[in-house]
Design a protein around this nucleic acid. Sequence first.
DNA 1: GGACAACCTGGAAACGTTTACGGCTACCGT
DNA 2: ACGGTAGCCGTAAACGTTTCCAGGTTGTCC
Lengths: 331, 331
Amino acid sequence: MAQRATITQVAQRAGVSVASASRALNGLTSATATVEAVRAAARELGYIPDATARSLKLGRTLQLAYAVADIGNPVYVEMMGAIQEVVAGAGYRLLVANTGDAAGTVDLVTSLQRGYADGMVLSPLRVTDELVEAIAQSPVPVVVLGRMPEAAAVDTVAPDSPGGVALAVAHLRERGARRIAFVNGPFDTTPGRVRGTAFTDAAGADAITVAATDFTAVAGEAVAHELLSRPDRPDAVLAANDLLAIGVLHAADQLGLQTPGDLAVVGVDDTDLGKLFRPSLTSVNLGAPERGRRAAELLLARLQDPGRKPQQIVVPASLSVRRSSDGKGSR
Amino acid sequence: MAQRATITQVAQRAGVSVASASRALNGLTSATATVEAVRAAARELGYIPDATARSLKLGRTLQLAYAVADIGNPVYVEMMGAIQEVVAGAGYRLLVANTGDAAGTVDLVTSLQRGYADGMVLSPLRVTDELVEAIAQSPVPVVVLGRMPEAAAVDTVAPDSPGGVALAVAHLRERGARRIAFVNGPFDTTPGRVRGTAFTDAAGADAITVAATDFTAVAGEAVAHELLSRPDRPDAVLAANDLLAIGVLHAADQLGLQTPGDLAVVGVDDTDLGKLFRPSLTSVNLGAPERGRRAAELLLARLQDPGRKPQQIVVPASLSVRRSSDGKGSR
DNA sequence: GGACAACCTGGAAACGTTTACGGCTACCGT
DNA sequence: ACGGTAGCCGTAAACGTTTCCAGGTTGTCC
């Protein structure tokens, strides 16, 4: 473990003042002779400027934070990859934080006041009044992945869940589905609420909706088992995410139903899991990487111009048609 | 966006010096009256100490870095979750870095000299001499996830890949397999090399090994297609990871082979993907979360006692038996 | 040759925090 | 009453860097 050299040592070795050394290293106006001397000294000593001291002086940390309720959810990871890329390209480091529940999210946002990051991309599971307030009070810009109340003047990037759900319903209808059911996750989460109402809007108020206890395959299988055993069994199911859809496929398989013959299934999120599953899963693509990318870009833009008007971006949805809903779809 | 209060303002408002304010806030010896006054002033102003200034003074950032070649690989994400948990529990923030190729990894380790983190957990794809040297020169401790040359005195946490591979081979033999083949990833990666030799050791030098171009399902399917069309077709396949194994299952399905009847398949990593796939995938569990946890703990231990002897931890492997290799296994 | 500009340099302050040091007060024991 | 001591407190230095400011040198143009 090598000992670190400071700019003072570099200046001493080059025979100049620290001020000149700093200028020379940062490309400010200085004589070519001193630039060379300082460069040489820095190279010999293996000098690398200290990030902390620089941060203190400049008032910026060159760090951005990405806060997410549940790391481990593949969708968030996809976003993280995109964010990391954009952020690193702009010379920032990325801090990852796990917020856990709602209270944790608020704590995390207020802790931004410690000044360890220049901004944050936040993906909250639930939007509470406290959270809106905390974001408004934040000393650094926050970009929210998801929807926020109109009144909160904050940059947001949201998926077009209603549009995506409508696409899925239209697709299923076109394939001849008569009775489409919706397998939702918990209704008290933002995605659960938004996708649930979007489905009712698209499929009509009389369409069946059931809610699983959470967004997992096991929960989806349990609720689908019941759903598919009804006398008025649906001939198509839209699930609120891919994991739930896989659960539905499992249940259908156990009940001896053919997919897509007896039951067409569509998921949401278009994950690798769905692509690799057999039958491959038709899924609504909500553009997770693009959402991450846009959020990061929004954050960078605001850092450059803090006065700019808050922007609400909606990333368009598309439908990836595969076997689970269409016999002719790609495997 | 609120303006941040400094300790100077707090001291002023409380009518004491900054020194006293600092002492009062940090619980050092001071009169109860001043403690109360300072606490009150801090509360009123909403004072939160500045992380950067504190870092500069204390010489520690309270940040740890996790560097990984390819975020997006689920195994690394699993580790990240565990690391994040341990690290946050000890009051550290977690920085995530994407290293990309080998050169990027070395750059990243040397950039630790900027002092933006107090330590690093590194998961390198390839171990080069430059990397070993860079780690030795690092001003802060580095814990490596994976194997390192004996000579490099560095803390490591490695999976017991040989043990796991042996478990899988024994399991397949026990189930009656006569001709076991190995579908490897690229041999010039550390996992590829280790698992490849482990397989040869366990299954005998005459056992067939083929290498896919990378660790993906598509690559696995391509190479398996060829492998399973041979006249001396194997009756069991061990794949170097779950994605490759899924590729093998796809190929088998296309060729009309029954699993596990005609072909038993075993993967490595025991991912959710494998659990959810049908037939569910038997897989070698290399304990990714535990490896992450142990690595983080090792890093924390070294931060507490920099003089301690470098430790090489090997996390034991186990086998999760499922349908793809055993008709009676859990679905 | 002198005035002035252009260029470069070093001293010093500043960012916000912690902490070593010395001085003050008050109290205790003799 | 007085020396000693314990407990608090404020001053100032320090962490490593950037940057303002003033001073000095050199060169140029009239």
